[in-house]
Amino acid sequence: MTDSLLVNTSPHLHKKESVKRIMWLVTLSLVPCGLAGIFIFGLGALWIIVLAILAAVITEFVLQAATRRRITVFDGSAVLTGLLLAYNLPADVPFWLPVVGAIVSIAIGKQVFGGLGQNIFNPALVGRVFLMASWPKYMTTFVRPLSYDAVTSATPLAALTEGKALEGISYLDLFLGNRPGCIGEVCILALLIGAAFLLLSKYISWHIPLSYIFTVGLLSYVFGAKTLFAGDWFSHILSGGLILGAFFMATDYVTSPLTYKGQFVFGIGCGIITVVIRLWGGYPEGVSYAILIMNAATPIIDRYTRPRIYGS
């Protein structure tokens, strides 16, 4: 009997939780806004999503096989990266675009660092800014909602950041997603359903999303118009990729701080950079860059927001 005893260190009890489960649950929480995106922009959006996911998974598989590491494509993390990348694309980009983006996301954003958990930057956003820098025209040409044809249209955020008032788009339109934009970012209602699921099941905490969104709201209210304290802060919150970014990308475990205190700082930093880019930068949208820049700041935030050791 004693020959077959398992001897290892305590604890001998483990919570029923796994990386795989977390990744698939986050993916699940992103389904509502994807469905909304497909409904709003047509079946083209579905193909973009499918292609991005397939390209991400295949890239991960090939790289892991080539470097003879354990194949982990079913842990859901590559699927999640592909999905998030697709959600950050307009619905009528050429079909090769999500494929290139996903390859960059997985290869440059994730695997060169050593794979899941090792990367410094959010892989989906690495792919997105690569596409943005390489093919800006495709990345800023948006489909008009519910018309299912590729009539291009300016996003409400572009108008907002130029200091114009929004015409013909109500808060309700913004909330439901009746506006041009990227596939996964437009329907705030669907995003909030997914976010509520993640918050209630404690897979994410409120610290990053709340501090991020609050900072954007506050700064866009103060500086968002010609005179101080007159900005349309509510539209700033509802438009662009803020809600998608704040709940689903800034909260990425791997690239955000470990402690609540650090996450708070991270969220505020994201908020400031987002508003600076939106109001004074060359791009209408700053969520991707804000999160990536704060990803780079994560180690230093972690350093200064360590928990207090018992008895010190």
Partner: peptide, 14 residues
């Protein structure tokens, strides 16, 4: 598996 920096250990450490 690789650490995904979820922070659970940090939050719960007494």
């Amino acid at each position: 598996e690789y650490c995904i920096r979820c922070g659970a250990c940090v939050r719960e450490c007494p």
